[in-house]
Design a protein around this nucleic acid. Sequence first.
DNA 1: TTTGCTTTGACAAATATTGTCCAAAGATAA
DNA 2: TTATCTTTGGACAATATTTGTCAAAGCAAA
Lengths: 106, 106
Amino acid sequence: MSKNTNASFGEYIRQLREESNLPLRKIAAELDIDTSTLSKIEKNERNASEQIIEKLSVIFKIDKGDLKVRYLSDKITYQLLEEENGIEILKLAEQKIKYHKQQHQL
Amino acid sequence: MSKNTNASFGEYIRQLREESNLPLRKIAAELDIDTSTLSKIEKNERNASEQIIEKLSVIFKIDKGDLKVRYLSDKITYQLLEEENGIEILKLAEQKIKYHKQQHQL
DNA sequence: TTTGCTTTGACAAATATTGTCCAAAGATAA
DNA sequence: TTATCTTTGGACAATATTTGTCAAAGCAAA
């Protein structure tokens, strides 16, 4: 993931789009959504569906997994931004996920 | 396995309740919710509101912050359990939160 | 059996999200 | 300046999700 990882998902998409010199209108058409919806996605005011993320990865020729990582980490970040113990929460979540994965392997 | 951090939020509450030998009915009354709602909370089928968490921490004399950490880490865990890159997502979220906090301090 | 505890499903009411349109605001070029 | 293209924000109904509640059913002990 070479670009600024601290950029939000929306900022990142906007960056990609502007580097391609394409208006919202064009990308929105490819995504088959309203221009205003894409505008809101770029401003992190709307969710991006799995399908949208998939299409964006094709349009901008980037790895879909990476894009999803960006998107979901963003969502979690926003969920925890107001929390006292955000980091602690993430650490524990990590522990739990590892535990679940391990259990699943047996 | 009494303070097992891998126990889910619901399992943990149930454990506390059973250690106190109190029926759902009693705790639910204190929480001012339906018995069936509490049952579902203990089975992780319903969300626990901020208010419920607060009251639970009082009833069971445990730290509210800790309880919230358990609850929220659980929610995040469930969100990511089906994801390929759960751990990566959490790492990036952590980075972002730290970044935001730092920015906030300036 | 009765009694008390717990679980489940159903349901409407309340909330939140989605998809869409349109008008206004901004930006750019002539 | 005007004309044109792009972007934004508000409004709205349609959907989806969550909440609060109830009643019935399951379960175990006496």
